[in-house]
Design a protein around this nucleic acid. Structure first.
Lengths: 225, 225
DNA sequence: AATATAATTTAGGTATTCCTAAATTATTCT
DNA sequence: AGAATAATTTAGGAATACCTAAATTATATT
């Protein structure tokens, strides 16, 4: 007599977040394996989440998924819950580092923001969990924005990011630091950022090859080859 | 973008437990009101829970529901979780008595037995929650048993419990203390007990008028009228 | 006791999230 | 480049927990 257990939206977002930390889109198959369900089921859910209002992720057939900033915010909230909980359980209930995970995995979905703040405060707002993983702070992700076409590349051309519009010099440094190269087939691009995560998104053309969450700043590129 | 929230089996059991603490069966309508859903929905769920293996409750059309001992065990586990959590949140996170309820309401369903033991131990195994409600201890409810016909009454007859089989003198005192009278139409009966809760069950005849969870001891009665 | 009213269940329908099998699309190999 | 293979999506179906409206059963009134 068990309640049918299905995955929450939070579970999907968290796992997508973890799968995409390289900056590469997550495939439906990889996500399916992680969750232990059939790939077809993931396809369906991903289609739903990508057309939600607001969209929690961007999805392109056969390409994979990337979180929107909204999706990232939700994912990071859960991760923050998880890591704070782990730290707290270890500290107050004598759990060992390896024991806390499953407990936190369940609690992370149900605690309130108030609860989160209380345990964070009770521990002096720690920056890392017992495993040494950083605990993401709140308000790290920028709001989503409408995407805008920026630059056109011919097929097979490559380009390097050279300028970021507006005041976002931070983002520019980030791009330059990565020596980011935009691959061929790219027609228009948008850039989004969170921590080391750098994602490129292309839309509106069938030859698009990269995709990402949502635009946060306009970016200009120089054609290379 | 919200996950559809439906009631868990635990929610049903807990609410039935609370509705039946008088010993009277809970009506589907009362349960529906408590949960904020349509009576028809409760009927369906109750039918399912009563035919589960093992059955978590006994249900008779138009009569209402009572928990089986198995159902009571599950309900008390959740209640124990709830009260321990309330006590713990108040003690360790500075929650006030009125704030803890909602938080505990969510946590109670997801914590492990290990977690439960840890917070109980951390507080020195308290017997009451911050509201003064007793925290049920584990292993309070007896296992379910196959029911057996014990005595036959003619229609309209009444009877008083006079003897309880085997060593259970405690139960006997309990029955006598209540001056329990078995109503008319009763053909065979079984008795179950938890704390002040006393339930009667009748089966196998369409004229049955009382119902209860499951038998725990044989009981003999004397015909009165 | 017969009828009116209220409570409850049944029947049929919706939405959700999973499944499997078939069809499609992408990738790899020769 | 073409064929074989692998990855992914589509289509159709199952289970669950809710809903509303209609049918039934119980209760109250006269």
């Amino acid at each position: 007599m068990e309640q049918t257990l299905t995955f929450s939206i939070q579970d999907y977002l968290k796992n997508i977040y973890e799968l995409t930390d390289s900056g590469e889109p997550a495939t439906t198959t990889a996500l399916a394996e992680r969750l232990g369900i059939a790939p077809a089921s993931v396809t369906g859910m991903v289609q739903k989440l990508s057309t939600a209002k607001p969209p929690l992720l961007k999805y392109r057939k056969h390409q994979g998924v990337m979180l929107t900033n909204e999706g990232q915010r939700a994912a990071l909230e859960v991760i923050r819950h998880h890591r704070l909980l782990e730290a707290w359980l270890v500290k107050t209930l004598g759990y060992s580092w390896d024991e806390v995970h499953n407990e936190a995995e369940k609690l992370e979905h149900v605690i309130s923001e108030d609860f989160e703040k209380r345990i964070a405060a009770a521990m002096g707002n720690p920056e890392r969990d017992p495993h040494g993983e950083p605990i993401p702070s709140e308000d790290l992700v920028m709001p989503d924005d409408e995407s805008v076409a920026l630059v056109n590349l011919e097929s097979k051309q490559e380009a390097v990011v050279c300028r970021v519009e507006a005041q976002d010099t931070d983002l520019l440094k980030h791009l330059e630091g990565l020596g980011l190269v935009i691959g061929a087939h790219v027609k228009t691009l948008e850039v989004s950022r969170y921590d080391q995560v750098m994602q490129l998104q292309v839309r509106g053309r069938k030859e698009a090859v990269v995709l990402g969450p949502a635009v946060t700043s306009r970016v200009y590129v120089e054609v290379v080859a």
